[in-house]
Amino acid sequence: MSDKTPASPTRDPPWLKWTLIGVALFYVLVVLMAPLLAVFIEALRKGEAAFFAAFQEPAAFSAIQLTLLVTAIAVPLNTVFGLAAAWAITKFDFFGKSFLTTLIDLPLSVSPVISGLVYVLLYSIHGWFGPFFIDRGIEIIFAVPGIVLATTLVTFPYVARELIPLMQQQGTDEEAAAATLGAGPWRTFFLVTLPNVKWALTFGVLLCTARAMGEFGAVSVVSGHIRGLTSTMPLHVEILYNEYNFVAAFAIASLLALFALVTLGVKAVLESRFEAELAAAERT
């Protein structure tokens, strides 16, 4: 090249750029990609037959079923809760608002094991409310309800956190405009508020789903690890691993990883496809 572009005063030197890119790439490869790849390699180590055999075992099948069931309950609950919380926080003024905002983040900062223990404290046979439910034949701890509760608690910030910043930025003018035009609260919600946040809501739900399927710590405490009954996919992986059944453990793990990858893939595709619309939603 004959012409040299003058160095821009705001541009950092090339060595810095390449060092940073290099560090980031190396980190992603070693910390993220290598383990992920290892999961699939280990799962297929003894061939396809062994891999698929792992899913045909009844306990594995029931673990997959339970995980899907728990996700199918926790995600809709947290979607409704997330929308309600985000709506309350961004469209109204009330006492304790900032406290509620902080509280929503709590499950992210508290170890999931503690979240699980709290439920044990509350609902186990020696817990505060446990005897009340057990007397009525409802088992929560070491049963499916406990797993659903623990998963819901751990994953409940995801939808709300995606929505709150966007809704805060959008303000309440459009809702006010809808009211002056004669629209009632439901009409306003479904025709104005919801379409404005549909992408943030979608992403929140996707993240929440990925997290709900993979939750280990809290579920581990409340489930009791009853094989074929209260064992979710992550717990089943642990059980298999402890039994030195590595191929089966990694096979189930690879399915979990696949769920997560598909979720991220859907998010990425949506993001690139509706980029323009996303930008419009954020513009004021």
Binding site: A176, T180, L191, E277
Partner: peptide
């Protein structure tokens, strides 16, 4: 109630429904 007053209000920053076309905005009321 606001919705029953039939008072037209044009907001300072217009508050148009961003996911609706101009025609859909006008038709909303």
């Amino acid at each position: 109630k606001v919705r029953d007053r039939r008072i037209g209000l044009v907001f300072q920053h217009y508050a148009l429904f961003r996911h609706m076309t101009a025609a859909q905005n006008v038709a909303f009321g």
